[in-house]
Amino acid sequence: MEKVEQAKRKKRVKKRNRFIFRSAILVVLFGALVFAIVSNLTAEEETAVDKNEQAPDFQLDRVANNGDAVESSLQLSDLEGKGVMLNFWATYCEPCEREMPYMEELYPKYKEQGVEIVAVSVDATELVIDKFVDHYNLSFPILHDKDSQVLDAYGIVPLPTTYFIDENGVVVDRVLGELSLERLESYLQEIVPKGT
């Protein structure tokens, strides 16, 4: 009788081991499958700076005839404590051109509330930016990313792309494409520093 018991127990252990072994392998294999599919679906934009990430710091020269330019260059980290709207644009980009007057219109009001508007142009030549700034009489800081370094660092694909960064330098929102006046204003309200 004891022998039968022993054999039975042995069999049970064996069965349990087999169950564990098979389950483990299936979990690993299906885990890999799920990983593959999820990664494939999210593979599109892996390099771009996205919502809730720290906005990478950068420093760029301001174009010559822009607003009350005292300093010839601007560093993002100097604006800490302020909300920052960071707009990537170019003169040849029509939607960018359309939203520029809205930014100019809202700029004085939000500057008072501690929000800075910074527009980074990816144009190749400074001349075209100068003419553009003159034409629209833009007063907020216009920076020239002539070597596309910042463009590369932020992983910008479509123009315009606009980042709304809070006073701690964290991206609150990222907007791909054109903004209407209303939407622009609602985004700006979100990044007004809490203290003021």
């Binding site: 170019a90 003169t91 040849y92 029509e94 990816v122 144009d123 190749a124 030549t125 001349l127 075209v128 003419k131």
Partner: peptide, 22 residues
Amino acid sequence: ELNRYYPEYELNNGEPRSVSNY
């Protein structure tokens, strides 16, 4: 004076504008 420069010039609704940087 070079008043306007369009790298890749095109007429758009009768207005000249550039379509790219190049």
